[in-house]
Design a protein around this nucleic acid. Sequence first.
DNA 1: CATGAATGAGCCTTCATTCAT
DNA 2: GATGAATGAAGGCTCATTCAT
Lengths: 197, 197, 197, 197
Amino acid sequence: MPVKNDKRTRILKAAVKVFAKRGFYQAKVTEIAKAAGVADGTIYLYFKSKDEILISIFDEEMEKFIGKIKAEVAGDANGLEKVRTFVRSHLSFVRQNPRLAQVFQVELRQSNKFIKEYSGSKLKEYLGLVAGYIEQGQQEGMIRPDVHAGLLKRVLFGALDEVATHWVLMKNGKYDLDESAEQIADIFLRGVAVARN
Amino acid sequence: MPVKNDKRTRILKAAVKVFAKRGFYQAKVTEIAKAAGVADGTIYLYFKSKDEILISIFDEEMEKFIGKIKAEVAGDANGLEKVRTFVRSHLSFVRQNPRLAQVFQVELRQSNKFIKEYSGSKLKEYLGLVAGYIEQGQQEGMIRPDVHAGLLKRVLFGALDEVATHWVLMKNGKYDLDESAEQIADIFLRGVAVARN
Amino acid sequence: MPVKNDKRTRILKAAVKVFAKRGFYQAKVTEIAKAAGVADGTIYLYFKSKDEILISIFDEEMEKFIGKIKAEVAGDANGLEKVRTFVRSHLSFVRQNPRLAQVFQVELRQSNKFIKEYSGSKLKEYLGLVAGYIEQGQQEGMIRPDVHAGLLKRVLFGALDEVATHWVLMKNGKYDLDESAEQIADIFLRGVAVARN
Amino acid sequence: MPVKNDKRTRILKAAVKVFAKRGFYQAKVTEIAKAAGVADGTIYLYFKSKDEILISIFDEEMEKFIGKIKAEVAGDANGLEKVRTFVRSHLSFVRQNPRLAQVFQVELRQSNKFIKEYSGSKLKEYLGLVAGYIEQGQQEGMIRPDVHAGLLKRVLFGALDEVATHWVLMKNGKYDLDESAEQIADIFLRGVAVARN
DNA sequence: CATGAATGAGCCTTCATTCAT
DNA sequence: GATGAATGAAGGCTCATTCAT
């Protein structure tokens, strides 16, 4: 018995591959099943619907990633550093998992169910992380307090998301994502810094 | 101008309404036809496919909007001011056309064709505008020249897009988009400003 | 333009044929479509579901048949004669439309929808006819009044239905249905007659 | 007898419950298994198919019931009395086992296999009983000999069946089935009596 | 130009049955 | 005998698109 939940994992991995190649709506359940080496019906022993496969990919990978980020910011001294770490990790993840990133950035938005549950999901938790770091920075007197953290988190996330999507769709490589990360962090942090004169 | 292309316009307007209410995939061509007061087949005299209706909405509204922005920045003295005007106009448009904005922000991304032609469209032209203002700012020595304008335009556009999507999905109103516009412009412009000391 | 509602009629006729040959659950929509010379989807322009085809066959044929019975009993002098006419017509219809009768007798009972709407349909109206004739006979003092007409109608209908089903399933012919009609009418009418002595 | 074939019995009992609640086609094998406290596969150690479960219920309960009827008519002096006993027992059974009756009256008819083997089963044997009583009555000179017993048995069975079905579907109770039994027996016996005078 | 009835390819999901353990 | 995870065939229905009128 190699791994626990062998089949479930195989299905998820196959789905990432197929979704990335074909797109959510073009991906046929049969194709996923074949790629996973299981029967069509087997998929429905582990997932309620095609939508749910996609959601599961997102939730489970997000879960892992959220944990990773939390660990990484643990050593950071203040909110500013945490935000920078967050930016680095986000784009680093995209660079290292382009196929998964494509599913996140593009295919996911084609699932009705996902869009409806846009809030109330791991995404919200993820955004909550940044908001927390930003608030910490505000309390530490390093980030201007007059802009709501809820807005700032969207500004930062939107910037990262757009850059990531472009990089992914450009079939990665054109430019150095890690360098972009540093620049984006610079811009954002300077932009939100408490004005010193 | 005695309503030239009356039908075409009616179809587009009906489509915006239906797409915003139902979402792209739930919107049926029949429903659009009924809302426009034409026969199903008539739609195909003006558009090659359902996808194309969506694209047309985007392109044509974008065309108008791009013209409007160009006019508005005409009076601006420098790149910085133009960027600020751009930010204001973008969110102001969203606030004034929430239904159209929802189609742009959400439904559009469900069209395979749109995603595939992500570049090569009015969107590219639109993004080109900001890039131009940013480059102008760089040439004027007011925006740091070491970050590629191509990255900056995505950072800004991503931020605006995310904030707009959230505002639209929250059924607008929760917060003041115009105020957000000023804050986003502040943050971005300070973030990208040439360091003075 | 040969007939009004040409397609709809063709579909119904084809469905009777296919239902009788294969049974309701074995009958595939595709097969009905082929038999009717239309595309699969066309069927759904005229009927909401496979169930509805079956129900429509029943309702529409029943409608016609109810009209025919009403006309036939019009010349009858009293309730007794009307009951006899009813019995004759019922089995005569079965004899003359064996395929339709099989659908009524056997396949119809395989449709969930039909069973659920067992009452509140043409069947109820049909049974109401007999009940009316029986009540008339009771008022005329020719049928015993101490048994509820609602029970009597079921007794008679059940007897006819069972005899008809058997005759249909035996691939008709074994015995003379018209003769059976006379005998069943004799037995029932004598059985329910007011005791004279 | 220490519960030989314990499982088999549990499965049958569970099936009656589930068939009555859901109907044959809505009843899932899994649900029966769960209700019986066995694994899905176990069912197939005792029955070849879902159809066969239904048939087995029918055959085995019929077997018992046929035995019971035989015992009850044993004390009857002639065919007429036996027919009356039969009528009483049939409806009495329905009244006392409404759930089982529903399966017999309604669900059973949804099984293709059952319908195909309509003859050649316990039902035939059951009908044979009545036919026998009727023939006895004919030989005793009390029932008119000019009508075939085969027809008479169907007339009587059909009447009982229809009344029973209605009673069962009406969720029993509306009227007194035992009283109906007497009236049906009266009507039938008077109807088939040899004409005197 | 306009119509709208007709098309028919396409697919997710169910569930009775099997079989390795 | 018992299990229950796995199978995979099967089909009703949708809906974008076409085309005869």
